[in-house]
Design a protein around this nucleic acid. Structure first.
Lengths: 249, 249
DNA sequence: GCAAAAGTGTTGGGCCTACACCCATGA
DNA sequence: TCATGGGTGTAGGCCCAACACTTTTGC
């Protein structure tokens, strides 16, 4: 999270003391992944973030940040919380650690940050560092390093919100590729919820809801039995979303 | 929602362009009520709101606003959304309508507002207008007048969030008085959800959850059969909250 | 042929829904 | 005594959870 005027926004009018942070979720290798930035010349990691211009809405700012970091612009995005404690973290320590990147005098005395999370198709993302970082990398949820600022708290809350949303809405259209297998989808749910699911019950439930349709193809080239492919039925998916159709797994 | 430096905060350092709006829910006469302010010398209504001081957290600011309007300081409070479109409403029109109260030159060109909702015990509230309004009054949810700014949208979203929360958590400890009857509680649920509930099923469900205990008293002085009184079992209530115990009605 | 993952059905229990009549009280 | 709202039980269905073996494929 940038809490200073960054190079990319130089000369543009910004909303003072207001920033945003994005928790970008992807799914790969049967694990939930999160996109993190490594600060230049350090081994310090944080969530991607940005500032808000006077001429863009909060949602537009979040979309811009996501586009910059991932190359994707059609994105599932949710604002989940605004973080506004007076002392969100130890600023002095951060200023020292990042003094070689940002002049300590440029930090706001206080910043409020709006938290967004996004679900993206891992395969379509081209991670792209910003001017203050020299790496933008996917991290497995269970291997996340220590994060700067209050980003562990933000991540925690994003994950809780995602799990809640998953509990009463279909999710996944944005996390999975166009065609996917039922075990893929199930492992996505397992990764998000952090628990094992019974494959028979899962399949019944998903098929009953009608949000996916079975294709007349199987996935070839994988070892063992070839799994069927499915795709989302977008119309039905939207319907279930609108109904607020309960959807506990 | 104040979008200018108001008298009450004169001389205090504020976070620029950031405000907060509160949807304060109460329950009375079997109806869900909302606290609204009438702007001085007008018949224009809006939600109570305020600004955020540099030395207070967002939550503290919300608590301060609630305390000022209701006199209550132990309050059930939820941050539910941050509203940040570039043009949240027709500013020119608002500036004209309120020109006699606020110098049009003092308005921010744009303000972002953090939405909170609160559940309070109607009986304990002493509604108290702020410096810019001459009335602070409860309104029945189904009789709400047109609201200024984008406050109808904010109210709408607050209600959706409240209903969602009601669906998977116990609620009501803060809306009902110390002792209440089962029909009271049921009508509170009906008022929030906007639909009829079967009294037998409701009672079973609530008693099963263990969040209330039956007292050895009945409510006297009401016409017709005397209903039993109940009170919340706070310990069990907190437990169910933590479990995230599902709680659909 | 063997190892690994995919695919698939049934049963029991609990929970939710639907539904109607009697009772106590104040007026 | 009457009108009004409070209090209460049961039966059916649906959904959910638990559970294990066969099939297919690549190696």
């Amino acid at each position: 999270m940038l809490e200073t005027t960054s190079k990319e926004s130089e000369g543009l009018e910004l909303i003072p003391q207001l920033t945003l942070d994005c928790v970008i979720f992807g799914f790969h290798d049967n694990a939930l992944k999160i996109l993190l930035l490594k600060w230049k010349g350090t081994d310090l990691w944080s969530l991607p973030g940005g500032v808000i211009r006077q001429d863009e809405s909060l949602d537009e700012a979040a979309i811009r940040v996501l586009k910059e970091r991932t190359g994707i612009d059609k994105i599932f995005l949710r604002q989940f919380h605004t973080f506004g404690k007076v002392q969100r973290y130890d600023k002095t320590s951060i200023q020292e650690q990042l003094a070689h990147v940002i002049d300590p005098k440029l930090w706001y005395k206080r910043a409020i940050s709006i938290g967004y999370y996004a679900l993206v198709d891992y395969e379509e993302v081209f991670p792209n560092p910003d001017q203050l970082s020299d790496e933008c990398t996917w991290w497995d949820l269970v291997e996340i390093p220590k994060l700067l600022f209050d980003h562990e708290e933000i991540l925690e809350k994003a994950l809780r919100s995602l799990r809640l949303e998953l509990s009463f809405q279909p999710i996944g259209l944005n996390l999975l590729p166009e065609k996917f297998t039922m075990p893929d989808m199930m492992r996505m749910y397992e990764a998000i919820l952090g628990k094992k699911i019974d494959p028979r019950n899962f399949q019944k439930k998903i098929l009953n809801s009608g949000i996916v349709v079975k294709l007349k193809e199987v996935k070839r080239g994988v070892a063992h039995k070839s799994p069927f492919l499915y795709k989302f039925d977008r119309k039905r998916y939207e319907e279930v979303l609108k109904e607020g159709g309960l959807f506990f797994i």
